[in-house]
Design a protein around this nucleic acid. Structure first.
Lengths: 338, 338
DNA sequence: CTGAAAGCGCTTACAG
DNA sequence: CTGAAAGCGCTTACAG
């Protein structure tokens, strides 16, 4: 690999002049410039971003920490983050925690040690201390979907309203025993969805039915397991709120195996839709979230925080955390048809 | 952030001694060591990997270039790569090309400029020249699933056998008009699957039916679109080979909308299974591939290539490209039941 | 057993 | 308009 030095030698100038010409950081005589560009081309020179990063204190890389990629909304979010990042010339280091606190801790440690300029995280909540430390140490952190740390910026959805509206909708559709799938390890989205559910159930004077289970590896299986055990408990629901499209798929499968018809016997609705529902054999009514947009906005918010951090060093005002929340759009499909 | 220098000052030694103590690279007096460790702890020092990388010519980061994450086998593969990489203390830069040659070119350029120690790629085939250049310039490249460049190492599946066996299986199940979903832009897996299909159809003296369409954004829609247009063409198949589980989901949806029953009227089989089929409403018979394992093995092969590259510089024999191929396992489910 | 020095490849005040 | 020098944070021969 050719270096600046090689180019400088070939163009008969100093490395500093080459640097200036390439970065357009001060006027360089056209003739000199031409010689430099020729040399660059001839040597097929590419700047070493590592050295640039070291010198400028920037990596041009961000970390994205998610519990899993697939099947879940995080796959779509990742796509959004990555596309936006590429546009701004940032690389994206995607890290799966598997929702395992130990793995998450290891990943966070790695990221802190000079790996990235900033972090977008959907965390387990078990490493809040470390996350806060990282943020305090100068690497901005944005929380996405899950926001266990109130003092850090976040991009999320309005889960309370989602839960509330979902119950009201199923009620209007005639459901009277509405179950909701909850998680074993409670995160903010689950809590908020439940709050909305609880409020609506209360107003309608309905009995709550919580579906919960030992954590399965992915959401499809989790939805399946929850549905199966609910059926074994003879909790005869006529409506089910799945936390996500993936859980909905698992629920469908469980019902199919027991010969229970959707939507005739039971209606199913997903509280986190990511454009998967329409293509299912029985299409799934979902609270659709703009998942890619959530990813894009997360990156932009992080970029703002990174730039603010740098500006702060030069005396600019302190960066103020922000919270961006998206509403969901109810898209009616076969799984809740009357 | 504390630096080596800070630690050295606090421990009253030279930075070189600190470096040696921390990296265990030569004997350091226990007392000195203790002072150093204390200082490290007190300052909560973490080495700057950027500087280490620059000095050692290593990034401890690899690039993973895939067409998409979800829904596809690449989601699972990514998981495998990332988990294995983490174990060996490597970060993974995941890049989506969207199967767009221009995006892919941009990503490859970025990766080449000092971003990674090696690359795992499922490429479009449009940038073979660049990929070869990168490999030749000293950044090892491993091809996964798709192997447009014969001279580079690869981890793939035995698609010829998969295509052949799939036809034979459906034939035994009574199918006589077996359609196969092909891609608009032909990649090696599609070519090989077709070769196997072609051979079997020939031996059985059956008429070939190719389903193809303008490229859709993702495989679910692609499968849906292909199935719909095939139905409009009155190509009355009684068996369909979908290229992947995702395409199978799209096919199911198309058939459901036209009130065609699976498996009674038509049998469906996926040629690239990634543990999705069993959880579908109508479970999907698939040629299951060890997708996570493919990811793990890809990383290990890359690691070997990286180490070999470094050893070469010290006079070790040249690294020889390898090709690892996995067989698929036919898992029978409802979609092909008799 | 440990220090002083060179250098990885770049950028950026400082001169002139 | 351009060169010489310092420095980003490390590692590693070279001495002693």
């Amino acid at each position: 690999m050719a270096t600046l030095k090689d180019v400088a030698k070939l163009a008969h100038v100093d490395v500093s002049t080459v640097s200036r010409a390439l970065n357009n950081t001060s006027y360089v005589h056209p003739d000199t410039q031409q010689r430099i560009f020729d040399a660059v081309k001839q040597l097929s020179y590419h700047p070493n971003v590592l050295a640039q990063g070291l010198r400028q204190g920037k990596r041009h890389t961000i970390g994205l920490v998610v519990p899993r990629l697939m099947p879940s909304i995080f796959g779509n979010i990742s796509q959004g983050v990555e596309t936006a990042a590429l546009k701004y010339n940032y690389g994206t280091l995607i890290c799966n925690t598997g929702d395992n606190p130990a793995t998450e801790q290891e990943i966070l440690t790695r990221l802190r040690d000079g790996f990235v300029d900033g972090i977008i995280i959907a965390g387990t909540g078990a490493n809040n201390r470390i996350v806060k430390d990282i943020h305090a140490s100068g690497i901005p952190v944005i929380q996405v979907i899950r926001q266990p740390i109130a003092s850090l910026s976040s991009v999320t959805a309005d889960y309370r309203t989602i839960g509330y509206n979902a119950v009201q909708y199923l009620y209007r559709k005639g459901c009277r025993t509405i179950g909701i799938i909850e998680s074993a390890n409670t995160s903010v989205p689950y809590l908020e969805r439940y709050e909305g559910y609880h409020k609506a159930m209360n107003e309608l004077d309905l009995r709550e039915v919580i579906l919960r289970n030992d954590v399965s590896q992915n959401n499809i299986h989790y939805g399946y397991d929850c549905m199966i055990s609910s059926l074994m408990n003879h909790d005869a629901c006529d409506g089910i709120l799945a936390a996500s499209d993936a859980q909905g798929i698992g629920v469908f499968r469980a019902l199919k195996e027991r010969h229970i018809r959707v939507p005739e016997d039971i209606k199913v609705l997903s509280l986190t839709g990511y454009q998967m529902g329409e293509m299912l054999e029985t299409s799934l009514t979902s609270m659709e979230l703009p998942s890619t947009e959530i990813g894009v906005k997360s990156f932009l918010m992080l970029l703002e925080a990174i730039n603010a951090k740098n500006a702060e060093a030069k005396g600019a005002p302190k960066y103020v955390p922000q919270h961006l929340s998206f509403p969901a759009e109810l898209v009616e499909r076969e799984s809740t048809a009357s």
